[in-house]
């Protein structure tokens, strides 16, 4: 083992070591969001479980929080239930929703039904840059959309009306008192 070879080797390993240390010690550790496991979705129960799953989807699988955040890539949704009433009444709204829940559900599947002024794609205020989250890469199921709506209702400070009923989803006037019944399931 000659001295020259040793020098070059030490130099190379020092460079690699410097990069490794920089990446693992200096750069802040950001742990990527764990993908939501299928089992967790199936065992969710109760209104609070419903909402917390909705929050998980909002921040994780649904990728909503990538844009709907304080950076302002997309409108904030903290008051969406109240806001949706004025949106449905807006002249350039061309969807078919009658209630806020219907509006949110519609917006998730066809985002361009109403485009908030200033948030269209570049050069076209009539088209939303948001993808259809019930299909494609995000692909939320109907159940997952309900979780998200429940979470958005809680965020807006209104009563959560979307809960799970036998065999499907109901948008009726079920209220928070169903917690115990839900929990039994």
């Amino acid at each position: 083992m000659n001295k020259r070879f040793l020098k070059v080797t030490i130099f190379s390993i020092a460079v690699i070591g410097a990069y490794t240390l920089f990446s693992s010690l200096y750069v802040p550790l950001i742990v990527p969001e764990e993908p939501l496991s299928v089992e967790a979705v199936d065992t969710a129960s109760g209104v609070e479980g419903f909402i917390s799953l909705g929050e998980k989807i909002f921040k994780g699988k649904g990728a909503c929080a990538l844009c709907h955040n304080s950076v302002g890539r997309a409108p904030l949704l903290e008051n969406i239930v109240d806001v949706s009433v004025t949106r449905i009444a807006a002249p350039d709204y061309h969807g078919s929703a009658k209630t806020s829940v219907e509006y949110i559900r519609e917006s998730l599947a066809s985002p361009s039904a109403y485009v908030v002024p200033g948030y269209g794609v570049a050069g076209d205020e009539k088209t939303s840059p948001m993808p259809d989250v019930t299909a494609g890469a995000i692909g939320l199921s109907r159940l997952e959309v309900d979780y998200v709506i429940a979470y958005l209702q809680r965020l807006s400070g209104v009563d959560v009306t979307v809960t799970r009923e036998a065999g499907g989803i109901d948008v009726s006037g079920a209220v928070e008192t169903t917690t115990s019944a839900e929990g039994a399931r």
Partner: peptide, 21 residues
């Protein structure tokens, strides 16, 4: 399935680089 962190990836890449070199 989880996405590895940058630090973890850097370690794997460093080991790979040394073997390759």
């Amino acid at each position: 399935a989880f996405t590895p962190t940058i630090g973890y990836a850097a370690n794997v890449v460093s080991i790979g680089t040394i073997i390759f070199m």
